[in-house]
Computed example of a mutant assay.
Amino acid sequence: MKLLTRHLWQTIDELITKPIEKLELQARVEMLLRSRRLSLQLQTALERERELREQKSRFVSMVSHEFRNPLNIIYGFIRLLQQRNLSVERQTDFYQRILAAVSRMVALLDDVLILGKSEADGLASNPTELAIEPFCQKLIEEIKFTARTGHTINFNCEDECVTVHMDEALLRHILTNLLSNAIKYSAPNSTIELRLQCKSQTVIFKVEDQGIGIAPADQERLFESFYRASNVGKIPGTGLGLMIVKRAVERHGGTITVKSEINVGTTFTVTLPLDSKIFHLTPEPY
């Protein structure tokens, strides 16, 4: 009231003695309200800009750190391989460690590129005819070859699945990320399950592991940018993978859910329409 009085009238006496024109009062009040709205919008924009700067700074720092570790591993093992008295077994072990570090860098680079595309155009989709069962089998073989952690990946096609209409690149990114996470967060030599179900209108993928699990409080924020569960410890990661997976799933017009129990395991369920169309998503800043 004080703010309103200060802008509309010089004194209380002026308010009492001078007649008030209804249209003039309405116009002045509307001007004050408009000014207030613009001020709030400006404050919100400035706060959002500050948050974006902080997020981008975290992103650059985190990605730099994630690249530095495998590069140091590669450099170190290359130096060791220069020794002439190494046994064949030691050389083979060092080469495998180098391959694992390279695979980690490639996966991180894929995440960064996908994230950049999602910010630029909301993840462009290019659905094509895809034989889903052979696609899954081939993908599992590729992941097992690059991971080399001793995990068993079982593939179970529970229905007769022939051909679907989906974006192969986005689907590859979804399943690769989920299977790689299952491997990363479960003990060596444990078993990962990929289950495929083809229904009348949808195809369902389930990735199950026997890993460290995710606490209920963490599950609520699991798909946020840079968020990592509280029990990951020193397991490397950027907190970007699942956020990008969720965007890719939504780009297909699908859904993703998680069910998990600490020290028991985690199951991610991805449901996609059999005939994926192009869904225009508004790019979100990171």
Score class of each variant (00 low, 15 high):
K246Y: 12
E133Y: 05
L71F: 09
L123S: 06
T282A: 08
F59H: 14
V88F: 07
S276N: 08
A100T: 12
K259D: 14
Q41G: 00
L52Q: 15
T191R: 15
L242N: 00
G76S: 07
T92V: 13
F155N: 10
A131M: 06
N156D: 15
N154V: 13
N263H: 07
I98S: 05
Q219A: 11
G253D: 06
E160Y: 11
Q10H: 13
Y227C: 04
I74S: 05
R97P: 15
E224Q: 06
F59M: 10
R36F: 10
F77N: 14
P70L: 09
L23P: 00
L40Y: 03
L196V: 13
A131C: 00
R36Y: 09
H173I: 04
Y75A: 09
G213R: 04
E160W: 04
P216V: 09
Y75R: 05
I174R: 04
F94W: 09
L23S: 11
L40K: 07
K234R: 12
D121C: 12
F155D: 12
Q55C: 00
S125W: 10
K138V: 02
E220C: 02
M243T: 06
G253L: 04
L81K: 05
E54T: 05
L139T: 11
M166K: 10
K277F: 03
E66M: 15
T152V: 15
L3I: 09
I153Y: 13
E89N: 09
L240R: 09
Q197G: 00
T257H: 02
T269A: 01
E21Y: 05
T257D: 07
R251Q: 11
Q96L: 10
G213S: 04
I114Y: 15
Q55H: 02
R50H: 06
V88S: 14
E30C: 08
M31P: 00
L42P: 00
P283M: 09
